[in-house]
Every structure is written in structure tokens, then in C-alpha cells.
């Protein structure tokens, strides 16, 4: 087995382990709660009988490890349990919304990743130029804006003052792709603005770091022109850092999604999660959290594997 395959398998195993650990943390969070969750959720006025019945429904009368295994078994077969508030099956609640959230996040990522990487590289190459300074101030401001601030500004400008795009991102049954892209334009733009700024700054930093390497100077001293320096000497070594930057910024994307969905009343997973937190519907929150965290870990894992697979020093061993 080649070392690189072994390394990738190692990462996969590590990723699996962190998935298990994260599921454990999400499960345990409830256990660590001081006091009785059933009492907490039902309130002080609940009778002991209802509390006991509720406990039994939650399975709280069983030992924690058994419940964890049971819960995890359910999760693996797509059974996330039932909502405390409505009694509905969580799996079916999540599936549809999850698709919508993925669509929105994917929409934003498809625009912001190429945009951020391009702008980041340009800012790094023209370091300390006017362009770089403007971009620096703009991105610093942009990451300082709360997501909902950006969202409402966009609504005010593009939905109220000049009514071009809808401020409520809901689409009926079977919308066309164009229709979906149109109706989710504002939330996607909000995410793009926030995420691009973060991602761009990090891309810039990693490219600057790269351009300071002696082999870049060597290329210049061999008479290699600026374009070729970047394409042939910098880029092959920049892949791994850029992939990592993209992965790191997924966290901002997820945070952004939760808030943007609320602002635009978009029926995604984030909206469901926020509603459930307010209702203290713990099982639903757990489910949403698990799905988000799972995706996050998997994408990070993918980035990890990709950066191993593009590292020349690992690809060609001694």
C-alpha cells in the first residue's frame, strides 16, 4: 500500500472518529444538564405524572450508554426520533429542509469560492497597491457586519427601494431552477458577501506567505515572467493552503445560513433549528446539529484528503 493511500485512510479513520465523538458530545450535552430535562422542558407547573410519562417517552429511565447506542443506531438508519413539541418524525422533517439549505449554501459557495480565491490571489500579487488597500478595508468592513445587517441592507436596496428581487425567499411546489435562483438571490448574496470577505483575507495571507519562498525568487532570477511564476511556480504549491482556507470558511457559511434563513423566512434547516431552540424541542435541535456538524466534518475531511493528494512531497516519496 502506498504511503499516501495509508495517510488518506488514516485521515478517513480520524474523520470517522471525530464524527462519533461529535455525536457523543451532542448526545452528552443533554446529559450534562443540571436538573431534570423533563421538568425543565415541561415547566414548574407540570404534575409528577406527566413528568414521569415524558421521561419514559424520552427514554430517560434507561442508562445513558444504552440510550446513546440506541440513539446512534437510529441515526445510522435515518431514524432521528420524534419531535418533543409536535411528535412528528424528525427524519422526515429534516430531509426536505436539508435539501433547501444545501441548495442555498451551495449557491453561495459556487459564487463566493471562485470569487474569493481570485480576489485573494490578486490582492496578494498586488500587495500594498491601491487595489489591495481598498480590498483590505472593504473585506475588514464586510466581516464586521452582522449577517442580518447585510441582509436588510440588500432587502432595502434591491427589494424595497428598487423592487428587483423578493425579500421572502419561498418558492412553491416544483419551481424551475431559474425561479429558485431568482428567489434565493438575496439570501445567497448575503452569504456571498460575508463568506467571501473571510475567505479572501485568508487566501491573500497564504499566497503572500507562498510568494516569500526562495523558490519563487529563484524562478524570477531565471527570468520567468510574472504570469508563469504564478501559474507554474506558485499555484501547484498553493492548492493545499487554498483548499484549507475554503474548508475553514465553511463554518462561516453554516453560521450565515442559520441567520439568513431566518431573515428571509427561508424554510431550511437553520430556520427549523432556531424555531426549535425557542420551543426547546431538544430532539429536533440535536438532529439539526448532527446533520450540520456531520456535513461540516465531512467537508473538512474532504479538504484534508485533497490537500494530501495535491502535496508533491507526499505524492513522490523518497
Amino acid at each position: 500500500m502506498s504511503p499516501i493511500v495509508r495517510m488518506i485512510l488514516g485521515r478517513l479513520a480520524l474523520g470517522l472518529l471525530s464524527l462519533v465523538l461529535v455525536s457523543l458530545v451532542i448526545f452528552m450535552a443533554v446529559e450534562l444538564l443540571p436538573g431534570d430535562i423533563a421538568q425543565e422542558v415541561l415547566g414548574q407547573s407540570a404534575t409528577p405524572e406527566t413528568v414521569a410519562a415524558f421521561r419514559a417517552e424520552l427514554g430517560l429511565d434507561q442508562a445513558a450508554p444504552i440510550r446513546y447506542v440506541h440513539w446512534l443506531g437510529g441515526v445510522l438508519t435515518g431514524d432521528l426520533g420524534n419531535s418533543l413539541a409536535t411528535g412528528r418524525d424528525i427524519g422526515s422533517m429534516i430531509v426536505d429542509r436539508f435539501g433547501k439549505t444545501l441548495f442555498l449554501a451551495g449557491y453561495a459557495a459556487a459564487i463566493s469560492v471562485p470569487l474569493a480565491v481570485t480576489l485573494g490571489i490578486l490582492a496578494a500579487l498586488y500587495r500594498n497597491s491601491i487595489f489591495d488597500r481598498i480590498v483590505n478595508v472593504a473585506t475588514l468592513s464586510s466581516i464586521s457586519f452582522p449577517e442580518y445587517f447585510v441582509a436588510y441592507i440588500l432587502i432595502l436596496l434591491l427589494s424595497i427601494n428598487t423592487p428587483v428581487f423578493p425579500s421572502i425567499a419561498d418558492f412553491g411546489r416544483d419551481p424551475s431552477l431559474g425561479d429558485m435562483l431568482y428567489r434565493t438571490f438575496l439570501p445567497a448574496m448575503t452569504l456571498v458577501l460575508v463568506v467571501t470577505a473571510h475567505m479572501m483575507r485568508m487566501t491573500r495571507a497564504s499566497i503572500i506567505n507562498l510568494m516569500a519562498q526562495p523558490y519563487i525568487e529563484m524562478a524570477r532570477l531565471k527570468g520567468v515572467g510574472p504570469a508563469r511564476v504564478i501559474l507554474r511556480h506558485a499555484l501547484p504549491n498553493a492548492l493545499a493552503p487554498i483548499i484549507n482556507v475554503v474548508a475553514l470558511n465553511l463554518a462561516y457559511l453554516i453560521t450565515g445560513v442559520v441567520i439568513v434563513e431566518v431573515v428571509f423566512v427561508y424554510p431550511g434547516l437553520g430556520q427549523l433549528m432556531v424555531d426549535s431552540v425557542a420551543k426547546r424541542d431538544i430532539t429536533v435541535v440535536q438532529g439539526c446539529c448532527l446533520v450540520f456538524a456531520g456535513i461540516y466534518i465531512l467537508l473538512n475531511l474532504l479538504a484534508d484528503v485533497l490537500s494530501i493528494a495535491t502535496n508533491p512531497q507526499l505524492l513522490h516519496r523518497k
Partner: peptide, 8 residues
């Protein structure tokens, strides 16, 4: 070691 490009 630092002046050769590791990718080529």
C-alpha cells in the same frame, strides 16, 4: 533545498 520548487 528551499530554492528548488517542491512541485517539479
Amino acid at each position: 533545498a528551499a530554492s528548488f520548487n517542491p512541485a517539479h
